[in-house]
Structures are given as C-alpha cells and as structure tokens.
C-alpha cells in the first residue's frame, strides 16, 4: 500500500464522523466520477445529477466501507456504475432523443470542413463506445480519460491485469466492428 493509499484510508475512516475528511475525499474524486458518468450518459445535466447521487450515497454508507485492499475510488466507481445502469434502465422505458453534443478539441483542426469531419468522427466514435457493454465502456473511460494503467483498472474493476489486457483487446475489436457497421449504414 502506497503512502497515498494509507492516507486515503485514514481519510475514509475519519469521513464516517468528520465532514471535512469527507470533503477532502470528495475533492479528490469528484472530477473522475463526473467524467466516468458523463462518458457513460453523454449528457452534462445527467452527469451532474448522477454525480451528486453517487456522493450522497457514499456519504450515507462511508461508515460501512471496509478496507479490503481495494482503493476507495473503486467503491465510488461501483456506486456510479450501478446508478448509471439504473439510469439506462429508466431511459429505455421512455422515448429517448440521443444527444451527442460533446466535441473533443484536438487543437489542430481549424478549417471548417476539417472541423465538421472531426466532429462527425467524434460523434460516430462516441456512439460506438456507448453501444459497447458497460464493462467495456468502463475500461475505455478509465484507460483514456483517467489514464490509468491496466493494473489500476484491474483493481477498480475487480479483475487481474491479464484479464484487463484481454478485455481491452476484445473491446478494440468490437469497437472496430461497431464503427464499420455504423459507417456502412451511413453510406447506404
């Protein structure tokens, strides 16, 4: 366990009764949880709403958190994962208008036509990512948004490093197939 991990566990222990300790944990993790939820839902408002619910739930149950060698962030991601799953279930019962307004700024594209192409490419890719099973989406978000190593992702997702490598390989393959089929549909 690194000094940062033990410091975090100390904070978690204190957070059960000390609001400042919980506030510190919140400061450390709010952005990453928000990012995770945003890329799973594709909506800023829902990302804010669900992030708030993740931390409210964490606040209510932090006293029950048990240190089993898994980082506190893994626990938060699990809460977020469950809430996002409920959110998708609720939405599937209602008519949904997909919203894909997020455009990554690569910093290099300035020409309007090139910009439009980059937006289209980004839209297709994010659509394809959101069609993947939840665990694969989580893997991609942790790897590319959070820049975590396979070992760290494994800790969060409760899998071995080897299993994460293999899942990543399968994820890229299915993402490629997904993009190809979306491309074909767009051309037809």
């Amino acid at each position: 366990m690194t000094p940062r991990d033990s410091d975090e566990m100390e904070l978690v222990r204190r957070a059960a009764s000390d609001s400042e300790a919980f506030g510190e944990l919140y400061n450390r993790h709010v952005t990453r949880i928000y990012n995770y939820i945003y890329y799973r839902t594709g909506d800023y408002q829902d990302a804010e709403d669900l992030t708030a619910r993740v931390f409210q739930r964490a606040l209510g149950h932090v006293a029950n958190f048990q240190d089993q060698g898994v980082p506190f962030s893994a626990w938060l991601y699990r809460i977020a994962h469950n809430l996002v799953a409920n959110w998708h279930r609720d939405r599937s019962r209602r008519p949904v208008v997909p919203l894909e307004d997020h455009v990554a700024d690569t910093g290099a594209v300035t020409h309007p036509e090139a910009l439009a192409m980059a937006e289209e490419q980004n839209r297709i890719l994010l659509q394809a990512v959101r069609k993947l099973p939840p665990d694969r989406q989580q893997l991609l978000i942790l790897k590319f948004v959070e820049r975590l190593s396979n070992a760290e992702i494994g800790q969060i997702m409760g899998r071995t490093e080897g299993a994460i490598k293999s899942l990543y390989h399968r994820t890229l393959n299915s993402l490629r197939d997904q993009i190809k089929s979306m491309d074909d549909r767009n051309l037809n």
Partner: peptide, 30 residues
C-alpha cells in the same frame, strides 16, 4: 482506433459552481 479514442475521450471539467455547491450540500447534510 487507439488514436481516435485518445482524441475523443478527453477529461471534462465539471462546472466549478456545481462542484462547490455539491460540496457545500454534502458537508451541510453531514
């Protein structure tokens, strides 16, 4: 594909008002 993912999946900063309001709400609840 990895290059495309790196370009598209970039960290997003939540609005500072959301972050501070939520923190205040959580600390008040506690």
């Amino acid at each position: 594909i990895e290059q495309l993912l790196e370009e598209s999946l970039i960290p997003i900063e939540p609005s500072s008002s959301f972050v501070s309001d939520l923190r205040a709400r959580l600390v008040t609840v506690r």
